[in-house]
Amino acid sequence: MIALHAHKTLRSPSGNINLQLELEIGRGEFISLYGPSGSGKTSTLRMLAGLLKPDRGTITVEGYKWFDSDTGHMTPPQDRKIGYVFQDAALFPHLTVKKNLEFALPRHSDPSIIKELTALTHLDPLMDRLPDTLSGGQKQRVALARAVVQQPDILLLDEPLSALDAETRSTLQDHLLALHKKYDLTTILVTHDIGEIHKLSDRVVKLEDGKVVAHGSPISIFSHHQVSGKFQFTGEILRIDKQELIYVVSILINRDIVRVIASEDEVVNLKKGARVVVATKAFNPIIIPL
């Protein structure tokens, strides 16, 4: 459990921001931080990483105080088991992929984790390459593997996929989920991409002006409608075809296209590209072993 009760006044060109964070994150949760620029998302990550000192409050992780303004204690960044990935991969340019990963390996730890990670993130063919010869997506894959090589308990991700094209982003999201599960990480992702939030996170925390204004499941935060159907996904309308008296609506859900039968009142306000919730009862789907 991470308990963040931290206050900090940040000075920015557009005036002061009063960060007043009251946030609890369960072990193993995948959390997305969502909110407008300047709402305090990156500062939240930096406080957790020990790169930004709160003015007052406490940060407690699994019962250990990482920060306490009353006693003046602050655990230094290197003693917090944290992996951090930024939008810019920030790899050492003169080291190969392999050396970049080995450099991050904590002393006295088993180097076999590198082999395991490179297999999981499909980096094996790139091990002898220098960062300059890699694509943006490949660099971020290395940055992600490097963060996990450090065997962190908490993975902090600051818009690591925002500069990538949709397909690369989707692949990296799959890698992220696989790593989160395999290494029992508590992951906190800053992102503006609502599709990404739905795909990855257990819970969204919405920040505005330095405060948590809402938190909950992605569907409860982004849908104005609460529907009891348990089989719920969000997707994007690809096409709407009228056939006989009904409409066949093709919807992209993650990387799969599903087709849903709809009546006119369901499609009347929808256009190609609209984001929608697709919901049905849990009683309808059947399960077939592969």
């Binding site: 409608h225 609460q226 529907v227 009891s228 159907g229 009862k281 009683f283």
Partner: peptide, 9 residues
């Protein structure tokens, strides 16, 4: 009974 969903705004 199993084909009905409930929705609350």
């Amino acid at each position: 009974f199993n084909e009905i969903m409930l929705a609350s705004r």
